[in-house]
Design a protein around this nucleic acid. Structure first.
Lengths: 341, 341
DNA sequence: CTGTTAGCGCATTCAC
DNA sequence: GTGAATGCGCTAACAG
């Protein structure tokens, strides 16, 4: 049988209350007593039963998710996953509060973080924006003992406990390899379509893409990157324009949102002159395009996995427990028509 | 506050014991009393606190994993994942027993299943072999109220509660698309290398592969499949032989184990005549080969995910709870050099 | 058939 | 500083 607090108390010759004080690092125990208890814990290999502890405390974990009020399919999907996970999480006594902030608004994000700090929650997950205001708010947060994890977009060299998202540099590199190899000997330039180069993720994807292209496919011409602002209408216009300017257009790497516009532009290409296209995020739009043959591959980050991972990590931090590292690594999923879920 | 058994008892005008009897479907309650309790449960929206219940019962979930004593890297990795998950699972009061059976031995598997049944465990996960003896043992198992899930290899139209593994037909189709597109206009036949066509998984992969190849790349010649028996030595000999017989060999799809032999054979190819190669399962061998450029893509099933998924499903069944469906779907991972974890 | 009671492993008042 | 007692939500004897 696993040792309990009773066993520890007996072994150390003290009462339950004292054991509890030591275990939870509370004051009011003389050093020699504390050492006796710690020795007993080590000798018996005691590990506290978190479930029982939570029951006794009637503990409810309260986590906040700060999500940009962005209306693209990916963010909508993320919200959906969060909602779906809520009931599942409730069974584990964890309650999740969803906080909306305007998209791309560092100031709003920073004050949302401060608000969370004021509410004394157990942890917070947020889609990061790399901005001094956000960084400062994050530091304040972690200094108050709150666990913070970034989701989808990271904040390097900060005090966040974890990042639940993909390596965007690697994603760009993957796209380049796939596109280069799918194109084979087919001539023609490649058009990179960003959402916004203001965003760290997109910059990283582009950087990875360019680097592999130069390295592995040096003869391939890369057109100047265009920014669609994650807006279908603008994306459609930009792609159509590029098609007109470069009749030989052979490939497209779309690494922002607004893929609805991309698909519309692609549908206008003449048969057989269809550029090889790779896009990001599996949504109803990209899924349909993949099946229809308009898109050749989709790189995806699993929003559900990201949400669940963030919660697991937050809970582990709150319990002072460890995580299964491999389980928390978010993969760069490659979807072709054939391996669609 | 969430309602507790006390609230139900008060609302229904009965005692805790009676509530408990109804909740757990135990006999000894008159129909009208039972209905009163059920009404109270429904009205208050009561859901029982599984953690508290387990604490009261001192419940320990006991699950068995029946794994073939196969010494290929994938199975070794699977064992490793199982081991890694054990400590994590122990925190949730779940104990996992690992049972070895000789590989490809239906009779041994069937008696292992019977042994598990005799031991009154809570659930069992096993790598299935499609054989009448196994099917019968499985039926006996589930009829005794045990939950069973298949891992890696499924048993269709059986009473298993869940399959934690990939769609092998889709995997074969994915391989064909990737290989066909990577080859582009390069001439030459493709060699399919199986482990054993006795195994359902391998048959399915081949079937999917052939079907897409005929459909999408009808001009491509597919050589007769060779069976390496998951043995590196035999695989090396077979691939070398094929290379000698077909100097123009352009592609290889290896969908069994023994990839160490495949890599050795590939290393002997002259520069620039290297066939485009796709293999299964990311191991230290295939990872190194991917990085070295000997292999072009690896299709993978995440053994850690499969193990954790099997455990989650088994636990959910034992609790009579539901699962997050999307979380339990095992993806066909595509790994290129660029998106290696 | 139904109710009372004592715990599961831990945390938290309150006395001493 | 330390200890005894009570309860978290639920189950499982044992009575009645």
């Amino acid at each position: 049988m696993k040792p309990t607090v009773h066993d520890i108390a007996a072994r150390a010759g003290v009462s339950l209350a004292t054991v509890d004080r030591v275990l939870n690092g509370r004051p009011g125990v003389r050093a020699p007593t504390r050492e006796k208890v710690e020795a007993a814990v080590a000798e018996l290999g005691f590990v506290r039963d978190v479930a029982a502890a939570n029951l006794a405390k009637s503990r409810v974990y309260t986590f906040a998710f700060i999500i940009p009020a962005n209306d693209n399919s990916f963010m909508i999907g993320l919200r959906g996953e969060l909602e779906a996970v809520r009931r599942w999480a409730a069974q584990d006594r964890i309650s999740i509060q969803l906080i909306d902030v305007p998209a791309f608004d560092a100031e709003a994000l920073a004050s949302a973080l401060d608000a969370v700090r004021a509410e004394q929650m157990d942890g917070v997950a947020f889609v990061a924006i790399d901005h001094p205001l956000v960084r400062e708010a994050l530091e304040r947060l972690t200094e108050s003992g709150l666990a913070a994890v970034t989701v989808v977009s990271d904040l390097m060299n900060s005090s966040r406990a974890h990042y639940a998202g993909i390596d965007n540099l690697a994603a760009g590199r993957t796209a380049a390899t796939l596109l280069g190899r799918f194109l084979g000997r087919r001539d023609g330039p490649i058009l990179p379509v960003a959402g916004s180069l203001q965003v760290q993720d997109h910059r990283e994807r582009l950087e990875g893409f360019q680097s592999v292209l130069q390295d592995q496919f040096p003869e391939r011409v890369l057109l100047p990157v265009v920014e669609g602002g994650d807006d279908p209408v603008r994306v459609e216009a930009l792609v159509s324009q590029a098609a007109a300017d470069h009749p030989e257009l052979a490939g497209i790497y779309s690494f922002g949102a607004g893929n609805r516009g991309l698909i519309r532009a692609l549908a206008a290409f003449p048969q057989g002159r269809h550029p090889v296209t790779i896009a990001h995020e599996l949504t109803s739009v990209t899924r349909a395009a993949l099946l229809a043959g308009h898109i050749d591959a989709v790189l995806n980050q699993d929003a559900g996995h990201e949400v669940r991972s963030a919660i697991r990590v937050l809970k582990a931090k709150a319990d002072g427990a460890g995580v299964v590292v491999a389980q928390e690594r978010i993969r760069i999923d490659i979807f072709l028509k054939e391996n669609l879920p």
